[in-house]
């Protein structure tokens, strides 16, 4: 039984580590700011901005695509210089990665990504891995207990012959 607990303790620790790593990655990928916040904060480093492509605003230039990205209230012009993407369509919600250029008042982006749809992925993995863990845990616990039970169990003999039982016949 001792080894059983040690083993499952280890599994639990590893699961916790994976969980922490997952949450970190989730935060890194999902955090994106809105155009409104971009205009307010004007950060100098690379940021991820989430918003909707304004209908009819896509303009193709040589080597770049210009379009408007709208947030809750504000709109920002985006200059996208990366490779052509099918995700860049009217009314599509996208995440653009890049830097705000205060001089030209445009957002220079080299990468466009879709909004990460982690909800379904997380649900699928939790729904399958958690029961699997419980299933296995339960099975192993039962095996460990059964070994103990079987060792303790006396072999039962029916109708043991005793002096009394013979006389009573």
């Amino acid at each position: 039984m001792k080894w059983f607990y040690i083993r499952w303790g280890g599994v639990l620790i590893i699961a916790a580590i994976i969980g922490v790593l997952g949450i970190q990655r989730y935060n890194r990928d999902v955090t994106a700011i809105s155009p409104d916040r971009l205009l307010r904060d004007q950060p100098a480093q690379t940021v991820r901005v989430i918003g909707m492509v304004e209908a009819g605003s896509i303009l193709k230039e040589e080597g770049a695509v210009l379009f408007q990205l709208s947030g809750e209230g504000a709109k920002i012009p985006v200059r996208y210089g990366g490779e052509e993407s099918e995700n860049l369509r009217d009314l599509k919600t996208v995440v653009v990665v890049g830097m705000w250029n205060p001089t030209t008042k445009t957002f220079d982006s080299g990468k466009i990504a879709l909004v990460p749809n982690y909800g379904f992925v997380t649900a699928a993995y939790l729904i399958s891995l958690l029961p699997m863990g419980f299933f296995l845990f339960n099975m192993e616990r039962k095996v460990a207990m059964l070994y103990i039970l079987i060792k303790e169990e006396k072999v039962y003999q029916p109708e043991q012959l005793t002096e009394e039982s013979l006389e009573s016949r």
Partner: peptide, 26 residues
């Protein structure tokens, strides 16, 4: 899982048999 579960079911049968009547040595 198959090994663990086979073992589990085998032991369950064995326990049942032992609780009932077992003449052979286990």
């Amino acid at each position: 899982m198959l090994m663990v579960r086979t073992q589990m079911l085998y032991l369950q049968h064995l326990l049942e048999a032992k609780r009932g009547r077992m003449l052979s040595k286990v």
